[in-house]
């Protein structure tokens, strides 16, 4: 064996070791939570990871959730799904239109770039600065603790991102295709519906899923605007766990339930996630 190939094997091994150590550091807390969620309350404080070998698995925590807590858990899960599903749909519609306008049309007085920057800045400032006035606004409109209030706020949270990403996706579609459709007698709106939208369908799916994930995870507004009827899952956990925070088995089960749906969605679209999180700046 030559020296070069030994060095190559060494390099490969090194890459593997770094990758695996980083991966363990990243997933270990989640694996620990999975193990803990299958322990009894007393066993949940022990250092044990492998079921049957180190501890006897138990359905205690999951029985709690599907039993005594079922009403609250199912209600908040439904609220979260409806709010995230609908708000992402509206975000997609508005974001698609605005993104297309910024990508294709020319705005004069207030230039395209200015509009785009303004919209981006809305995502950048800390959301807490509009919390108090929006709370008062929703109270005045009798919308506190309703789906509508949380949907509106989550739209505010996700729309800037959607506009930017859709603008980015539309920019990638060559204008010639639409142009030839226009020459063939298609209306501008027709060209948008029949050509641009189908061509950017993967982008549309990515934007929908991204805003679903963010809406599902959003906490500040959810906990401020909903308390009972419309409470979302993250806000519900916060209420349940601030009282019973030391029952590690139940903490694990509830957080896993909150983590799983966005995680599955993220795995499905892992290619777009970094691009989405960086507003299209990095195409990972």
């Amino acid at each position: 064996m030559t020296q070069v190939s030994i060095r190559n094997i060494g390099k490969k091994l090194f890459i593997w070791i770094v990758l695996i150590i980083f991966a363990i550091w990243t997933v270990f807390p989640l694996i620990w939570a999975v193990a803990t969620s299958f322990k009894t309350m007393t066993e949940s404080y022990t250092l044990s990871l492998i079921p049957y070998l180190q501890f006897k698995p138990s359905w205690y925590a999951w029985n709690e959730i599907w039993g005594r807590m079922f009403g609250r858990v199912s209600k908040s899960l439904i609220n979260s799904i409806v709010v995230a599903g609908l708000s992402s749909l509206f975000v997609l519609a508005l974001g698609c239109l605005a993104g297309y306008a910024l990508s294709r049309f020319v705005f004069e007085k207030w230039k395209n770039k200015d509009i785009a920057t303004w919209i981006l800045s809305l995502r950048m400032f800390p959301p807490v600065v509009v919390l108090i006035p929006i709370f008062l606004m929703m109270r005045t409109l009798y919308l506190l603790d309703t789906w509508r209030a949380i949907i509106l706020v989550h739209m505010l949270y996700n729309l800037p991102l959607a506009v930017w990403l859709m603008m980015d996706f539309f920019n990638e579609i060559p204008e010639d295709i639409e142009e030839s459709a226009l020459i063939d007698g298609c209306s501008r709106f027709g060209a948008f519906v029949r050509i641009s939208i189908p061509l950017s369908s993967s982008g549309l799916v990515a934007v929908y899923i991204l805003s679903f994930i963010f809406s599902w995870s959003e906490f500040l507004f959810a906990v401020s605007l909903s308390y009972n009827k419309a409470i979302t899952f993250p806000a519900m956990i916060a209420g349940a766990l601030s009282v019973k925070g030391l029952d590690f088995a139940r903490v694990s089960a509830l957080t896993l339930l909150a983590i799983t749906p966005p995680m599955i969605l993220a795995v499905l679209m892992s290619k777009y996630l970094i691009r989405g999180l960086t507003f299209g700046a990095v195409k990972g």
Binding site: T26, L30, S217, P234, I237, T255, A258, I259, V267, S270
Partner: peptide, 30 residues
Amino acid sequence: KKIPFRNFFRVIYLLPMTAPPIAVAFLWRM
């Protein structure tokens, strides 16, 4: 370099940032 099982590792590393921050908070409080 050329990373083996690139997609697999990418998914693993993406997991923490897709979790709701409040869930991350309760996990780590534990």
